[in-house]
């Protein structure tokens, strides 16, 4: 399976995701944002970081970059797109995913391992997880407070487009288990066709027991499947 990782000035999780993808046997290519053509890809990853120093709004400038037009075209033709952290913010700025990521409600940058629950395991990104499985995944962000309007929120719920929700170790979804104030504890969402996943937690940081755990592996294994 061919994957491409888009690299912007200020991306800083691009190599981590490349290592995770290669570990899972993807044939991966790094694509600089100024390029106007994408290599043949089954999966495009927009990695975490601080593209363009978060100028204007997180993801705003990257969301209008040259390569993004190609990503949008690929997304519309059904290619799988995964946006992690800043990548999620960029996807909302392109309009590929609705809603936006506001500043964390405590106004602090949060770097911690949190529990998230797999809400929908019948997608190409999550088929290897069990429904309602609780994962421990790292988050590291300042703007992770997902917000969207009521109509879209209802659509997310009714069409099963919520990918992950923040929860406690037993899977209870409550305000106490919400690290950043995200509406309905949302940690990740899909588009209507479920070929685009945006998530704040970092699955690429959870692929090796030596440094963390392996709760992120099944996301890549699902895609590979």
């Amino acid at each position: 399976m061919n994957s491409s990782v888009i690299v912007f000035p200020g991306s800083n999780c691009d190599r981590d995701i490349a290592i995770a993808l290669e570990k899972m046997q993807f044939k991966n290519k790094m694509v600089w944002h100024k390029e106007s053509k994408l290599p043949k890809s089954d999966l495009i990853v927009i990695p975490g970081g601080f593209s363009y120093g978060d100028y204007l709004r997180s993801g705003a400038i990257a969301g209008k970059s040259l390569i993004i037009n190609e990503v949008i075209k690929a997304a519309k033709s059904g290619c799988l797109i995964l946006g992690i952290c800043n990548g999620f913010q960029i996807l909302t700025e392109t309009g590929l995913l609705k809603g936006t990521l506001l500043r964390n409600r405590n106004l602090k940058f949060i770097n911690s391992d949190v529990n998230i629950k797999v809400i929908n395991n019948s997608t190409k990104f999550t088929s290897k997880y069990k429904s309602n499985q609780v994962l421990k995944i790292n988050i590291a962000h300042n703007e992770g407070n997902y917000f969207t309007d009521k109509d879209h929120l209802n659509k997310l719920k009714n069409e099963n487009l919520i990918a992950f929700q923040y929860c406690d170790i037993n899977g209870n979804i409550s305000d106490q288990s919400n690290p950043n104030g995200a509406i309905e504890n949302i940690a990740g969402i899909y588009n209507s066709k479920k070929n685009i996943l945006g998530m704040m937690p970092h699955p690429e940081r959870m692929v090796d027991n030596l440094i963390s755990n392996t709760d992120g592996i099944n996301l890549f294994a699902s895609i590979m499947n």
Partner: peptide, 9 residues
């Protein structure tokens, strides 16, 4: 509309 403002918020 194209860049400066995020009309959602």
């Amino acid at each position: 509309k194209k860049l400066l403002v995020n009309l959602i918020i």
